[in-house]
Nucleic acid binder design. Structure first.
Lengths: 139, 139
DNA sequence: GTATCTGCAAAACATTTGCAATTCT
DNA sequence: AGAATTGCAAATGTTTTGCAGATAC
């Protein structure tokens, strides 16, 4: 990686998104975090670095990314939406005890069953809920 | 079916839920509707029949059903949660154009990939997003 | 110079909670 | 009577919007 900022700039522009400083930082945050963050988590973490940042900008940016299919809403338990980069080759597991959201690698993206015709699929999501290994062994 | 109300009464009690009139009506509504309704849809439709019904009761009842794993949150697009009876043998398809949520029958419930150990899975959800056959053919 | 994006504050919604009244056993 | 459930109204929390100022092209 030569210059992360410049690369993200190109990446976003290629997808029809004007690459402002805030947008680059938010995309970069999603790429580097493994927590499937909520708007609040993103705002709280980025605000110290970018004191002028507002929550509205985080909301607007994520909505733009959603529209352009760069990100997905992963989980909505607990009333706050949680986000992740769009990628059909992994699913998610939400632990009901500790609330962690874990990436589940998939060999291949799940597909619609044979015989269903006429559907155009833009996005695929596989989600499990239960107890993660740590919480499961604690009982 | 002999007596739907009486049957639902037994069904709910078997699952540790005291079967009030409101709860039976809400469960029955979910069973009979194919729209994957939101709280508002349930409330608007049931309110004429049960004038005293309050939104809070619909929320409370759905939360109780969620806790007892009788229902699932299917979709959260547009900020309102949409509900369906829990059943791992079907997935969902949300049409981005018309907003309809369509049941997708599955031969078998999706499973965690081999090699992941220690997870307890209580709930599985497979979700597609795109254009349904009708909307797809209109462009 | 025009269009777009940001940040603030206010508005709009969705959901939860506290409490009194009601219902069920 | 005692326990649980309902309905209302108020509170909470999240997300969206309108608009003025700042930025980018």
């Amino acid at each position: 990686m030569r210059n992360k900022i410049a690369d993200l700039d190109v990446f976003l522009r290629d997808r029809g998104i004007k690459a402002s400083f805030q947008r680059i930082k938010i995309y970069d945050y999603l790429q580097c975090s493994f927590t499937h963050p909520s708007v609040s988590m993103i705002y709280e973490d980025l605000h110290p670095q970018i004191p002028s940042l507002s929550r509205a900008t985080v909301y607007n940016t994520l909505n733009l990314f959603l529209e352009k299919k760069l990100v997905q809403v992963v989980n909505t338990e607990g009333s706050e939406a949680r986000f992740d980069l769009a990628d059909p080759h992994h699913g998610h597991f939400t632990c009901e005890s500790c609330g962690t959201i874990i990436d589940i690698p998939l060999d291949k993206a799940p597909a619609l069953p044979e015989g269903l015709t006429g559907f155009e699929v833009f996005e695929t999501q596989l989600h499990f809920r239960g107890k993660c290994p740590q919480c499961s062994s604690k009982n």
